Computed example of a mutant assay.
Amino acid sequence: MRRRFRQISDLAVLWAGHRAVPVTLIAFIALWTAVGLSLSFPRQWFLLTNMLGTLIIFFILLLLQHSQNRDMMALHAKLDELIRSSKAGNHWIAAEKKDADAIEGMRQQHHGQITESAN
């Protein structure tokens, strides 16, 4: 089930991120509005399409967030492995899980080390 969701999510993100999608959607909305006004669709019809459009956008945003979170987790795992295999201090591993003050302290310490080694 999880694998299937990932496949659907990746396909939806790939589709939603294509450069032709916004142009196609704007053309479709303009056509839909023109047809609706010329045929005098009732007000409820426009409310229904507005609600469906909002739900679709919300769903696509959730899929994009899911994909971005998965990509960031993979990126952090790769960076952690690079830190582990290099001469860098292991205190940088999983820095993203620390609070903002701790990260700023680590950054300041690193900046101080760079300044000392340059002198």
Rank of each mutant, 00 (worst) to 15 (best):
W15C: 06
L25T: 12
L47G: 13
A88S: 11
E104M: 04
T54C: 11
F41Q: 14
R107T: 07
E104P: 00
R3F: 10
E96A: 03
F58T: 03
F46D: 01
F59A: 14
I57W: 04
S86Q: 02
R107W: 05
E116G: 01
P42M: 05
I56P: 00
A102S: 09
S117Y: 03
L82D: 14
S9Q: 04
M51C: 15
N90C: 11
Q113L: 15
S40G: 11
A12F: 09
M72I: 13
Q113S: 11
A102G: 04
S40M: 13
K98R: 11
Q68C: 04
F59E: 15
R19C: 09
R3P: 05
F46P: 01
A88K: 07
N69P: 03
L61I: 01
F5G: 01
G112F: 05
S67D: 15
D101Y: 02
G36C: 12
L52W: 11
S40N: 10
S9P: 00
D80W: 05
L48S: 06
L48H: 05
K87L: 10
N50I: 08
L75E: 10
L39R: 04
L39Y: 05
H110R: 08
G36D: 11
S38V: 01
I56Y: 07
V35E: 09
T24M: 06
P22E: 14
T49M: 07
I114T: 15
H111K: 02
N119W: 11
A30T: 06
A94W: 01
A77H: 02
I83E: 06
F58E: 07
R43K: 03
F58C: 06
H66A: 07
L63H: 04
R3I: 07
A16V: 02
L52M: 15
Q7M: 11
L82R: 03
T24V: 01
W92L: 07
H111I: 06
D99M: 02
F28Q: 12
L75D: 06
I56H: 03
A16M: 13
L39I: 02
G89K: 05
W32P: 00
S38G: 06
R43Q: 11
R84L: 06
L47K: 10
R2Q: 13
I83V: 00
A100D: 07
D99Y: 06
M1S: 08
D101C: 06
A30N: 14
S67M: 07
A74W: 12
Q68Y: 12
Q65F: 05
M1D: 10
S38C: 14
L31Q: 12
M106H: 04
P22W: 10
N119F: 08
S67Q: 14
Q65S: 04
L14G: 04
M51Q: 14
R107S: 13
T49D: 09
R6L: 09
